[in-house]
Write a protein that binds this DNA or RNA. Structure first.
Lengths: 251, 251
DNA sequence: TATGGCCTTTGATCCACGTCAATTCACAGC
DNA sequence: GCTGTGAATTGACGTGGATCAAAGGCCATA
């Protein structure tokens, strides 16, 4: 194990069971939450080992090819991570809001495989690997757990959705909206009315669709009374209807 | 950390650096190897803690919903794992040959999310979790490492290929063949001529295509002199040509 | 050698989504 | 207020792959 990051510093009173639960099995319909930390947990953590940093819209947290030495936790704001392919294509691999971690996919590799960009003025906790000392077994377990959860989540949150070549555009968009809605709800925001921070193009990249298709499906959803969209503002009117679309399979 | 599986029993002279290297970054073109163990490593391991079991064609190693208490390593033969969705759809999530591990995705969850089925008469090493004692830090690292590698691989080997909504059928098939070829080569088999163990339908399920499409693309590859196919026998004639197809993007 | 059950191939058609293109809209700067 | 710029919408059209359907091949068993 020559990974740079061998363990987390111990922070005894941070409640970690939360991470655990995020790991429990979930159905396709109810796409589960990404790994996250509760607000109090974040506060605890950044008092102790982490530094906070403001980031501006468009600023990169890390980029492919840079040496990779920190883990990032979104404190406020909104981020995306994207994958770059050698032939120039790129794909958004995730959107990240307060409490969510970014940078796990670089661990254990010299180079990481993702870019992370702020979609709006935001704040992150920066967690430099070299300040994470291998002090306790408990924290080794935590690190271990991070990996486990993260990897599961990558596969889950994105994979399950995308692996299905069979999934149609409506299905993907519906799942996407429900997922966002749920994540916002657990953060105390309204699950039924919110602001998409990303463009149609970014959504499309994430879901494997073109921006025009995303736009068209949004319009169709609106006609059918499932949602109300105006630019980036979305109001979910008939969540049940969306849920029915997910898992419907080919029309 | 109440995971059933807390650490591996230590087996000092097993060379684990192999796992590490599988983790190193790889490009889309050269889809990297799945996690595997070398033959000597396998021998060492199953002498010590593991039991071997023969499995017949069509037999299940584990199934969704069963209590999950072991890890499996393909010893000989060929396996597939598949994901079942609540609405009845299912998708092949991977094919596994000698030395490859199955069952990692159940770790930490009460239920696992996959089925594993033997595609032909095979043999597996069964690694019951309750025989994996938490004895050494080193082995905790190994377990940790397993997770890391596995999760990366899931995302890599399948994810990278599939996440790309943009990937066309030819691209997927080409990547699939090259991947198989490479895995066989590292096991001492001919990389240019081999026997597909799975049906067109299973390939299609794995790649998000229909069996007819798989068949058509194989035929087209043959016409273009890239490969020679006859039923399940494949001979790669122009590997370079296949490699060019991967990463080409939309026609 | 015949029979039945897959698996595979190939053709014909259909449709969801990509592509190209033309407006329209929101918002920032002046 | 105007104006410029990038985002979003909407239409027209083309196409890759799904779907439906019909043969043909391989192999096991009788």
């Amino acid at each position: 194990m020559s990974s740079k990051m061998t363990a987390f510093k111990i922070v005894p009173d941070v409640n970690l069971s939360r991470l655990k639960t995020a790991c429990s099995s979930c159905s396709l319909r109810e796409l589960c939450l990404p790994v996250d930390l509760r607000e109090e947990e974040m506060d605890k953590l950044d008092e102790l080992v982490f530094t906070r940093r403001p980031v501006k819209r468009g600023e990169y947290l890390f980029r492919v090819g840079e040496s990779f030495d920190s883990l990032y936790a979104a404190r406020t704001g909104f981020f995306k991570t994207k994958l770059l392919l050698e032939d120039g294509r790129e794909q958004v691999t995730g959107f990240h809001m307060a409490g969510e971690l970014m940078g796990m996919d670089g661990i254990g590799t010299e180079k990481h495989t993702c870019d992370a960009v702020a979609l709006e003025d935001s704040e992150v906790c920066v967690i430099p690997f070299d300040r994470l000392e291998s002090l306790s077994r408990e924290m080794e377990a935590l690190q271990h757990h991070f990996h486990k959860v993260m990897s599961r989540e990558i596969v889950r949150e994105h994979g399950v959705m995308m692996l299905l070549g069979s999934m149609r555009a409506e299905e993907r968009l519906a799942a996407f909206l429900l997922n966002l809605s749920q994540r916002l709800q657990t953060r105390g925001y309204s699950p039924s009315e919110f602001n998409l921070r990303m463009t149609r193009e970014e959504i499309g990249s994430y879901l494997g669709l073109k921006l025009e298709t995303v736009s068209r499906v949004f319009s169709r959803f609106q006609e059918e009374g499932l949602i109300a969209v105006q630019q980036k503002n979305v109001r979910i009117i008939n969540a049940g209807g969306l849920r029915e679309l997910v898992g419907k399979g080919p029309a």
